[in-house]
């Protein structure tokens, strides 16, 4: 019996070893769609993590009340409710971010990462462990978003913390020519493909 250890395990599992993006290839659409700038990627990660935590909390609380046959529709309604809450909060507090993420905010509903955690973990485990697991998966997803967004912003725009003119940092001198392909949709695919290959290589090298 080492209760603390179990929570820590649930939390860290999603970060590298079972990273939802690099290992399971879940949630690819927002990953490619919003990572033009680091700020957008981070915002998307936080929003998804919040929805995941909410979903895992409610589902694990109700796990003994939910009939098995209709569990998927119930999960979807729970997730959709939290997504609505998040979308309204974003619209109220971060209108610029909400505008930039656009239809990808409501599309968090379709993120298989969340439904996957609910089905595989929260519907069978106690509340605290489920939330730790949801938080871990959300953080793992955020990590992937931030890495991809960092690569794309640095290479595609030569900036950090853009596009807001108040916070933007020009990384290179005035003669820098950005590789605009990485700001384009095509660059998202290529950058993610290369990152995946790199991740595979590291996993192999360190035998994880």
């Amino acid at each position: 019996m080492e209760p603390k250890n179990v929570y820590l395990q649930d939390l860290t599992r999603g970060l590298v070893k079972e990273n939802p993006v690099f290992v399971s290839l879940l949630g690819m659409c927002p990953l490619l769609g919003v990572t033009g700038f680091l700020f957008y990627g981070f915002g998307m990660g936080v929003a998804t993590t919040a929805v995941t935590i909410g979903g895992t909390l409610i589902v694990s609380l109700l796990r003994n009340l939910i009939p098995k046959q209709v569990r998927i529709p119930i999960f979807i309604v729970v997730v959709a409710t939290f997504v609505t809450v998040i979308e309204m909060s974003l619209e109220a507090f971060q209108p610029a971010l909400h505008e930039a993420l656009g239809v990808f905010v409501p599309l968090i509903v379709c993120n298989c990462l969340i439904l996957g955690r609910l089905e595989a973990f929260s519907s069978k485990r106690p509340v605290l462990r489920s939330v730790a697991d949801g938080l871990g998966a959300g953080l793992g997803f955020t990590l992937a978003l931030v890495i991809l967004a960092f690569v794309r912003e640095v290479l595609g725009h030569g900036t950090l913390l853009g596009p807001d003119p108040d916070t933007v940092v020009q990384l290179f001198g005035p003669n820098f020519e950005a590789m605009t392909i990485f700001a384009q949709p095509a660059g998202a695919f290529i950058a993610l493909g290369l990152l995946l290959a790199l991740f595979n290589m590291m996993m192999k090298r360190f035998n994880i």
Binding site: L25, F189, G193, A197, N200
Partner: peptide
């Protein structure tokens, strides 16, 4: 290379298609 096999190369191909 075997690290590219599967989804990695598919994504890169998708990138070229997108270009």
């Amino acid at each position: 290379p075997d690290v590219l096999q599967g989804s990695a190369v598919t994504l890169i191909t998708a990138g070229i298609l997108s270009i």
